[in-house]
Structure formats: structure tokens, C-alpha cells
Amino acid sequence: MSRLICRGELIEDRWRWVDADEAPAPAAGEGLILPLARWCAQRPGLDAARTGVWLGPDDDVAPLLPWLATLPLIAIRFPVFTDGRGYSLARLLRGRHGYAGELRAVGDVLRDQLYFLQRCGFDSFALRADQPPEEALAAFHDYSWAPLSAR
């Protein structure tokens, strides 16, 4: 199992990423994160408590809206660190649609992005393989923030 940052702590990842063509078979205590199209197609037969969904930067959140209250995890994939569409997806899910479950940033996620990803609503982070999560924890203290009206 890999380690990730969740709500400011290092934890063992209890979720398994499933690609579009992979046949999922969860181990005991493990959840699955399915791509949006597959999640939509198989949703009626899925264990809602152990199945999350992953979104790519081009995915529309509309198919998820009726199910947001039951989704334990939504992962948003960043194909390259310069692609900011995942930030917008996170803001839509948290701000406009009120998603309260785990929102995870995955893919080309770097330490330098963590503070800003958190500000957009992400609460867990699966960092790129060359980014040590132990060192990345300090990123949440890199900046201080106050609303412009408080300055």
C-alpha cells in the first residue's frame, strides 16, 4: 500500500485506483476508485460505501450530482501539474454542489501545489512518485492567508 496525505496526516491508502479496462477485485478492507464512465455504467451494482469515482480534467460532474451524498471519495486526476482544470472541478464540487466526502488530488501532484489544492477543497493528496509525502506535509505552512478585507 502506498502512503498519502489525508487531512494533514500521513496515512496508508485503503483505496485502489482502477483504470477503464481493469477488472476490479477489491481486497478485504479496500475500496475501489473507478473512472467516471465505468462508475456510471456499473453504479447500481456497486457497494456505495467502498466505491469512489475518479474524474479527469475533461469530465463533467453532472452525472455525479444525484449521488454526491453517498460518494465516500472523489479523486481528481491532474495529468500534468500545469493543468489547472482540477482546481475548478474541486471548487465546483465543494462550493456549488456541497460535496462533503473525501476529495483527493492524484496524478502529477507536487508539494508546491498542496497549499493551493487544499484552498480549493481537496483534503487528500496522492503525490507524484518522486515527491516524498513526509516532506510535503510542511507545504501547508508555507503561506499565511487572510482575506483582503482583513488586511
Rank of each mutant, 00 (worst) to 15 (best):
L64C: 08
R104L: 08
L93G: 00
G29P: 10
R77D: 11
A49I: 00
L110W: 11
L110Y: 08
L55W: 00
L64W: 04
P133Q: 07
R77Y: 15
Q42L: 14
L137H: 06
I76S: 03
V61S: 03
R50A: 10
M1G: 15
Q113L: 09
D112Q: 04
A62L: 12
L68F: 01
A75S: 12
L71S: 04
P44S: 03
V53G: 01
R50W: 14
P133C: 10
I5W: 13
Q42H: 02
A75L: 12
A37T: 09
R7P: 11
Q118D: 13
E134W: 01
P57V: 12
D47Q: 06
R14F: 08
T51R: 10
A75C: 13
D19M: 12
Y87S: 01
Q113M: 05
P79M: 04
P35H: 06
A136H: 06
P79K: 02
D47M: 01
Y115A: 06
D59N: 08
L92A: 13
A20Q: 14
D21T: 07
L71F: 02
R77I: 07
Q118I: 00
D123Q: 03
P79N: 02
E30S: 10
L92Y: 02
G86M: 07
F125N: 04
Y115L: 07
G45P: 01
A23V: 13
R111Y: 03
E30Q: 14
L89P: 05
A105M: 06
L89S: 12
A41S: 10
V18W: 05
E22W: 07
L34T: 08
R16Y: 13
L127P: 00
M1L: 14
W17N: 10
